[in-house]
Design a protein around this nucleic acid. Structure first.
Lengths: 229, 229
DNA sequence: TATGTGTTAATTGTCGACAATATTGATGAT
DNA sequence: ATCATCAATATTGTCGACAATTAACACATA
């Protein structure tokens, strides 16, 4: 974990902002490994900044649950447990179900069309390059729905907290899902429900969609654990 | 807003911690009024600390949505809109419904008994001193259910974010609810469902319980708005 | 009077140094 | 050899000062 500071245009005004953003990516992509300790002096030198803005960045990382801090001891990158992953899936079932319902009520026709375009783009990607779709494309879709809910607090929770954690888990566990095709179809049905302004149906479909993912993950974890343990 | 720094035992290790906690209360209770600008130098002097730990405290307040910061400009106490309040109620319907279901699955018998004792304590308070129950007692109950879910991320979301916002709104809008008696009864039914380990019912009852509150709030806001506007 | 501009003042962002706490390693006793 | 104690080291928490940016104000102009 040495070259964290390059690439990414990201034109933020304050140092803490840009460093926070870079650290988010570094953690999510595993460049800074899970469970590893974070040394403030070392990181400050690596970024060529003082510890002031670095600590502010760390505060935000703590807020989005990417690191854990203990007073007078320091910060560690969060280490993920399967149990915690399931917890997050359960929350998503509930919260994104709500998001889908509200999206059906509040999205503009234009936004719904854009959702369609997104799905079409995904279909292309699935044919050529499955890996990208699994890692990021699926997230794009879910994020769009959440934004479509127009519930600012919901959007906030998602983008400051769940979004990064979900990405982290996906990179961490690799999740070469056998559900890619199936998930894509379910996405289509959800958009259909939203277009028909059927909030209840959209909620039900979204909730079940994530629930299926959860059960799939639980199954994979079970199998893996019974092998290794 | 002058004597913010006294009272409350709260033995935290770091200055940022204790100041953050004090500011949370000061904002929630309206000692620092909603929408007001926060001056770092002024607050630092008032607390007798430097701006370093103060800024860390502010970061956390931003994370729990009690203040809003704009780079190079400063921080303001969040100003509440009825619309935003409804957004939060919708999130609670969803999230606390989940919490109730998981509580029915995961709470120990001992914890359920403690819930009962809490309800009994509330009954006393309603008879004598309605105001406390409305402001804090109701919150206690909901918090216990969330904790009972044993879903650490859910607990986290509630205690770092929603909890303070809900208290803030309650202090802000005063909410002399006509639903106190009704709400208390509903709490009882929820506990019954949890004791019977009927997760689905607990979820349904909790969701509807909060939904009723929301509709009540919407009605009151409607009436108030049609008078003032 | 209203509006735009430039200067001053105030506030936020950043830095480096010091104090307080925790970790590490060595030393000695059981 | 194991464990406890203590010194040395490193890390985090806090502070005060400086730099960069924004807000406030006076002044000139239409």
């Amino acid at each position: 974990m040495s070259e964290i500071l390059e690439n990414k245009p990201a034109v933020f005004s304050t140092i803490a902002d840009t460093v926070c953003s870079k650290l988010q990516n570094a953690i999510v992509e595993g460049i800074i490994p899970a469970g590893s300790k974070i040394s403030e002096p070392a990181l400050a030198i690596e970024f060529g900044i003082s510890r002031g803005p670095l600590r502010e960045a760390l505060s935000r990382l703590e807020a989005c649950n990417l690191i854990e801090r203990t007073p007078n001891v320091g910060a560690r990158v969060v280490s993920l447990t399967p149990q915690h992953l399931v917890e997050i899936y359960l929350i998503r079932e509930s919260l994104e179900g709500l998001a889908a319902r509200m999206a059906a009520e509040n999205m503009s026709d234009k936004e719904i069309n854009e959702l369609d375009e997104l799905l079409e783009k995904h279909q292309q990607q699935i044919k050529q390059d499955q890996s990208y779709y699994q890692k990021e494309g699926d997230m794009d879709f879910h994020f769009q729905i959440v934004k479509g809910s127009k519930n600012s607090h919901l959007i906030d929770m998602f983008s400051n907290d769940l979004y990064h954690l979900i990405r982290l888990y996906r990179y961490q566990f690799g999740m070469v899902s056998n559900r890619v095709q199936r998930a894509f179809i379910e996405h289509g049905h959800i958009v259909d429900a939203i277009r028909q302004r059927d909030g209840e149906l959209a909620q039900f479909l979204m909730s079940r969609h994530i629930s299926s993912s959860r059960k799939n993950v639980e199954k994979m974890l079970d199998e893996h654990l019974t092998i290794t343990d």
